[in-house]
Design a protein around this nucleic acid. Structure first.
Lengths: 207, 207
DNA sequence: CCTACCGATCGGTAGG
DNA sequence: CCTACCGATCGGTAGG
């Protein structure tokens, strides 16, 4: 018999509310553990324990560990896309839009508790091929937002290269911050964002 | 009894030549498998099989899987440091030195068979704390070479930011290439290096 | 969602 | 370096 709920449940139904809360909690703690220890090094038992369950119970909500990984990535990326879209909406200039997406992107990958996108970035290899297309589709939309902003920056002469490769260089520089950022260090996320903006388009007096 | 050889053996002795060949082969195939599948997802049995051994034999050369991982990282980084140092030696200008380290660094992380440094970059978390100090010491020297070149670039007004954070942005952009580079694609490693140099310091006619 | 469990796999070892 | 093996762990399931 089918003992696990469909992975598409997003918790909007009234009758499934408590159940979807448990599911959401599993996604949350799985994201944290996958980020801290990696997918392969995280036993489902540990995820269950962190969510206050017994070892077999996550399989009531997800049919496999792979499905749980996919849920972490998909839900995190969807939320990130939404935040990014809101961040650029209505910005008066390309530079303002750029500052906004840099800040938002860094917040998405650095803020405490924001483990979903880092899992996507650093555990991609652990996602089986079957599940990748769905994630890639969202990622393409995320990258399209970046491409539009970079295109506008180039039009105003603030960057030299708005090609996909230029975007990947910017992406790399920003995503790499997750490797060296220290939450308790002297550099705040906003400070790093300012440094990054300055690094890519020059100091304010040049603009 | 001690059945495995010391991890410091570098194969220079005559009597241990064949044995060190087997050891080197283990490091090589372990690097490839760790890169392709990740440390946690790679059984020692698979490494043994890829080296033409039976499942328990790697433990004759390494006392643990962790030690094998450390050997992959240490040997790869030492070789990379040597290549980087040779690449910048005697370069007539800062820009030539920059071009050289960008090319060399990209070759180190992208060339087929060059799996060691990518393992260091993407499996760092899997290295137990005990083994990290040794690797960090080499990494510091590697980064010092970069810092010197960036300092010279700044002196000539070719980059704006030669601080450690600026170096990390450059590092991130380059290291991220390992995520999207396609060995059989239309962009060669040298072509990517040229694009990167141009991205960071501008087109030739600006210099 | 829990209890109890299974089959498979894994790192590592004894002895040769 | 091989053979043979062990103890531990893991993803997942049956039945409730």
């Amino acid at each position: 018999m089918a003992r696990h709920r469909d992975g598409q449940d997003n918790g909007t139904s009234v009758s499934g509310n408590e159940e979807s809360n448990r599911r959401a909690e599993l996604v949350r703690v799985a994201g944290r553990l996958f980020r801290e220890n990696g997918y392969e090094a995280t036993p489902v038992r540990d995820i269950a324990a962190a969510a206050g369950m017994r070892s077999g119970s996550p399989f009531y909500h997800f049919k496999s560990k792979q499905d749980l990984l996919k849920a972490v990535m998909a839900e995190g990326l969807n939320k990130a896309l939404q935040e990014l879209t809101e961040a650029v909406a209505g910005k008066p200039s390309a530079i303002e839009a750029f500052r906004a997406i840099v800040r938002t992107h860094l917040a998405i990958i650095l803020e405490p508790g924001a483990d979903f996108v880092p899992v996507l970035l650093y555990e991609w290899r652990s996602l089986a091929c079957d599940g990748r297309a769905e994630i890639v589709a969202i990622k393409d939309r995320y990258e399209a937002v970046w491409q539009d902003v970079l295109r506008d920056l180039k039009r105003e002469g603030l960057i030299r290269d708005d090609s996909p490769i230029g975007r990947l260089f910017v992406f790399g520089a920003l995503n790499w911050v997750a490797r060296w950022y220290c939450p308790h260090g002297s550099l705040s996320i906003d400070a790093i964002a300012d440094r990054a903006v300055e690094f890519f388009i020059g100091p304010p007096n040049r603009r």
